[in-house]
Amino acid sequence: MTLGAEYGRPPQKREEIDLARISHYVHVPRRYWGRYLSATLIACFLIFLAVSFARGQIDWKVVAQFVMAKTILIGLGNTILMSVLAMALGVALGIVTAVMRLSTNPVLNSVARGYVWLFRGSPIILQLLLWFNLALIFPTLGIPGLFEYKTVDVMTPFLAALLGLGINQGAYTSEVVRAGLLSVDVGQYEAAKAVGMPRGLALRRIILPQAMRVIVPPIGNEFVGMIKLTSLASVIQFAEILHSAQSIYYANARVIELLIVAAIWYLVAVTVLSFLQARVERHYSKGAGRAAARQ
Rank of each mutant, 00 (worst) to 15 (best):
M1V: 15
M1R: 09
G4K: 12
R9N: 09
R9T: 04
Q12A: 12
K13D: 14
D18W: 08
S23P: 02
R30S: 12
R30N: 07
R31Y: 11
G34D: 03
R35P: 00
R35L: 09
Y36C: 00
Y36T: 04
L37E: 00
L41Y: 01
A43P: 03
L46Q: 05
I47D: 04
I47M: 10
A50S: 11
V51T: 09
V51G: 03
A54T: 11
R55E: 11
R55L: 14
D59L: 06
V62H: 01
V63N: 09
V63Y: 08
V63T: 12
A64W: 10
A64C: 10
Q65D: 13
M68H: 12
T71K: 13
I72M: 14
L73P: 10
I74W: 04
G77W: 11
N78M: 13
L81A: 15
A88Y: 04
L93E: 04
I95F: 08
T97F: 06
A98H: 10
A98R: 05
M100A: 15
M100T: 01
M100H: 04
R101K: 15
L102F: 02
V107R: 10
V107W: 11
V107G: 01
N109A: 04
S110M: 12
G114H: 07
G114I: 10
F119E: 06
F119T: 11
R120T: 08
G121I: 14
S122I: 15
L128C: 04
L130D: 01
L134I: 03
P139K: 03
I143A: 08
P144V: 08
L146C: 05
L146T: 10
K150C: 01
V152Y: 02
D153K: 11
V154K: 06
M155W: 01
T156Q: 06
L163Y: 13
G164R: 05
N168W: 04
Y172C: 05
E175W: 07
G180H: 06
D185P: 00
Q188D: 02
Y189G: 00
E190H: 00
A192P: 00
M197A: 03
R199T: 15
L201G: 01
L203G: 00
L203Y: 15
R205N: 14
L208G: 02
A211M: 07
R213I: 05
R213G: 08
I215G: 01
G220I: 07
F223Y: 14
I227P: 09
T230C: 13
A233T: 10
A233H: 07
S234M: 06
F238Q: 06
I241H: 07
S247K: 11
I248C: 11
I248H: 04
Y250P: 00
Y250A: 14
A253F: 15
I256P: 00
V261Q: 08
V261N: 09
A262C: 12
I264S: 03
W265L: 07
W265V: 05
W265Y: 12
Y266I: 11
V270F: 01
T271S: 13
L273Q: 09
S274N: 14
F275T: 10
R279N: 01
S285D: 15
G289V: 03
R290F: 09
A293K: 14
R294H: 07
R294G: 02
